[in-house]
Nucleic acid binder design. Structure first.
Length: 111
DNA sequence: GATATGACCGCTG
DNA sequence: CCAGCGGCCATAT
């Protein structure tokens, strides 16, 4: 059910190290549903119920802060990312390749 | 109960 | 090479 999928998404997002970012597709792929990236995005939307879910560390494939508009403020997401060492320019993460964190490669295959 | 939308990604033309 | 569309999951109306 949704609960499981959402929980898994939250679990992965929670494992994202500070100063690193990942993409919805990477999380979805880690969960075994690379085409369900939308569901991951929806999970982020519901992440408001969770407090330990750094959704600000989750960006789209291009490193664009597509969901920053969903945050409390308008630059809160950027502030948090820059605060962790992530350089953001025009709602776009810089050095994405350097700070990209892939759960499928860094984390272990589904537990 | 069914239809439409959404913080997306990849493929096809 | 650039542009357009479909597909998946869940929630909202």
């Amino acid at each position: 059910m949704a609960g499981d999928f959402f929980e898994k998404v939250y679990e992965v997002v929670k494992q994202i190290p500070a100063g690193r970012v990942t993409s919805y597709g990477a999380i979805a792929a880690y969960l075994g549903a690379p085409r369900s990236c939308r569901a991951v995005g929806y999970a982020m939307n519901a992440s408001h119920s969770q407090t330990d879910v750094p959704a600000h560390r989750v960006v789209n494939r291009k490193g664009l802060l597509t969901g920053k508009h969903h945050f409390q403020g308008s630059n809160l997401m950027v502030q948090l990312l820059e605060s962790e060492g992530v350089k953001v320019k025009e709602d776009q993460v810089q050095d994405l390749e350097s700070i990209f964190w892939d759960p499928t490669d860094e984390l272990d295959p589904l537990e």
